[in-house]
Design a binder for these strands. Sequence first.
RNA 1: UGGGCCGUCGCCAAGCGGUAAGGCACUGGACUUUGACUCCAGCACUCCCAGGUUCGAAUCCUGGCGGCCCAGCCA
Length: 559
Amino acid sequence: MADAPSGSSAPSAPSDFIRRIIADDLRTGKHDHILTRFPPEPNGYLHIGHAKSICLNFGSSLEVGGVCNLRFDDTNPEKEEQEYIDSITRDVRWLGFDWADRLFFASDYFEKVYECAEELIRKGLAYVDSLSAEEMREYRGTLTQPGRESPDRHRPVEENLRLFREMRAGVHPEGKYVLRAKIDMAAPNINLRDPVLYRVKFATHHHVGDAWCLYPMYDFTHPISDALEGITHSVCTLEFEDHRPLYDWVVDHLDLGCKPRQIEFSRLSLEYTVMSKRKLNLLVKEGLVSGWDDPRLPTLAGMRRRGYPPEAIREFCARIGVSKADNRVEVGQLESCVREALDASSPRAMAVLRPLKVVIETLPEGHLDRLTLGNHPKRPELGQRSVPLTRDLFIEADDFAEISPKGFKRLVPDGEVRLRGGYVIRCREVVKNEAGEVVELRCTHDPATLGADPVGRKVRGVIHWVSADRSLPASIRLYDRLFLRPDPEEEGQDFLTMLNPASLETVTGRVEPSLADAPPEARFQFERVGYFCVDQDSRPGALVFNRTVTLRDSWAGGN
RNA sequence: UGGGCCGUCGCCAAGCGGUAAGGCACUGGACUUUGACUCCAGCACUCCCAGGUUCGAAUCCUGGCGGCCCAGCCA
């Protein structure tokens, strides 16, 4: 893809049971081309689970020379909005996929779907039912008991047709009638117990306006839409497995000239987050997060704002694979992909999250070294930048310890450490306030160590720093997991009670001056700290960075 | 307890009767002016359990156990 960094490794080549089915269908001649589709309902923002589906649907087809349609499954006007259509198209494109001119709406097929319904009625395979919703539930039976037939089940075809047309014409109120398929009220699969095909809704549809007051159900619309588009493989998640007999029933009893095959895979679960649009919607509506693009959310908009590169998400989807097994993927799996992509592509910079003043007494007042540092340790083509080194500096508070923990390689009283890209300094004096807190370090520097190793001794530690007066203040948002538990709903918990109160910490740090004009979404590695991106709220003079992910830290475990 | 599906390393996941891939994580070690990156090494005598078939079983059969999904005029 266009923004794949040259330094990144080749993406994993996916292979799974669905791709195998596709390969077999091509090999045996069942199909001579492949056409898949990604069919989101525009009732929320896309999340990483959708990314798995997008990568699968687009990927499996593209890899064998096929294409993939983008189709909005917009059969329920009460839950759908144009805002979601806009966000979805943006997110799919951002992820790196292109549907060319194949953008479709199930609602554009409503006339054809309606004709299919009349066809079923004429064939005696569908009927208008006047059972109320509650009655229908009673008649449906239970998981262990068969249902009973509605008294309307044997309504004459002509009457069904008349009533159905009246439903379309708007003469009947919502809830009075529905159109049902006539299948088998005793079927062990509840989806086959005369499922509802159409219901009346006097709602304005976001895409077709007031053209209809009669809306088809997913189970009826989806197979017809697939067949109309000539979809060869209709890939969806496991909860639709029980619907496949109904999917096949619809296609088999209609003359659509095409029979797509539905194949199901298990949806993605990620640790410490929730993945359903209903729950995400709740978090957004309740104001528990800042919006659909809150960087703590698993939404693609949130991940984009967090600084996750699209190629990292694609790689993640390739690595986790596709199967039918229940799963809950570790966050580290995703973070590994993010770090891999960002290590290769991100320019380095220095920033201090929790500043501790350092004065280099051996440098004169007003001293200024304009150091030229490489933007990337392995990619000189990413250029260089100038970093000012002055007498007064800030270092990370964590990089100094009065009492050295064992194995500590940073600054301690009377100890030496290298300033990244600068001199080796020695701590001569620790200045504290009345409360006994360390507020300043008085140090000396070894002028012979700029770009050279000190003679006669080895300095193990290297720490990052910024000039005290030539650095810029920045608001830095440190994100952590949104929930306290890997499964926020474990043991029937209300997931809202499991929110992590520390999922966002904002600190005011200092960043090197080269970052002054970095535009929103620009990504950097703050050396030794992590990967950060410029937030859309950032302005010159009021910089805002989001922590995308920390650097891997093999020291953190030791203390 | 009706129906459907699933159970291979801490987490994903290959495997499809011939003697357990890979990734992430983890543990060493090398390198290092990022405790990063990179590199090298280690990491399932065993595939939910129990029987059976077979020269040979994670793969086939039988019986258990465990988990997920389904009773919207949602998708």
